[in-house]
Amino acid sequence: MNQVPNSAMIEMRNVSKWYGQFQVLTDCSTRVSKGEVIVVCGPSGSGKSTLIKCVNGLEVFQQGEVIVDGTSVGDPKTDLPRLRAHVGMVFQHFELFPHMTITDNLTIGQIKVLRRSKEEAQEKAARLLDRVGLKQQAHKHPGQLSGGQQQRVAIARALCMDPICMLFDEPTSALDPEMINEVLDVMVELAKEGMTMMCVSHEMGFARKVAHRVIFMDQGRIIEDATRDEFFGTPRSERAQLFLSKILSH
C-alpha cells in the first residue's frame, strides 16, 4: 500500500474562496494520486470541510482550479452531476434519505443516475450491504439504525456508484465512541484495497494506520502537507505541533 502510482486523481491549484468579505480558503494547493489516502486535519473552522467539498463542487470557489480525473470542477461547461456520480461522499451526519428504505437508499442513485436495471442495482446493493455487515437491515428505514450502522450504510451507498475516489467529511465525529471503530474498520479496509481517499478526520489512529499523507489546515490555509511519517515524526510548523500535542496528549 505504500506503492503509490503517480497519476493525479485530484489536483487543487491555488484554490481560494470567500463568503462575502470573509476568506475561508486561501491559495490551497495539493495533489492526490490514484490510490492515495489523504487525511485532512486542523482546528474547527479551518476550512477542511469546505476544501473537500470543492472537490465535487458542492462548494463553489472563486479562484484557482480543481481537477478531478482530468475534469475541471470549476469550469461552467463541466457536467457536475456526471462528475459527482463517480466521486463518493460520506457526510458527518450520514444524510441517508429518511423516507426510503436502506435498499432504496443504495439503489436510487444506481437506477436514476447510472441507469442500471433495478435487478442489477439491488444485487449490487445487497453485496455492498453484506460487505459492511448490514445485510439484515436492508428493508429498514435509516431512523431504525444506530449512528454507526447508518454511517456504514452511507459508505455502502457511495460505493454502489463505483466511485473513482471517496471524500469523507468528518465521518466519525457525530458518532458515539463505541461506534467509531466499526466505521473506521470499513474505511481502513477500503484504504487497503487501494481506494483513493480524502478524509477530513481527527482520528489520528486512522491516519497513522492508513494515510499516505496528512494535510494540516489552519485559518483557510494548508499549513502542512507531509507524508505520514514526517507529519507524526517531526511536523515542521509550530501550529501543527501544537495541534498534535493537544489532540494526542490524552
Binding site: L58, R82, R84, A85, M89, F91, L96, I108, V113, L114
Partner: peptide, 8 residues
C-alpha cells in the same frame, strides 16, 4: 448536498 453528491 447528499442528493447532489449522488449525482442527481
Amino acid at each position: 448536498a447528499a442528493g447532489y453528491a449522488m449525482g442527481f
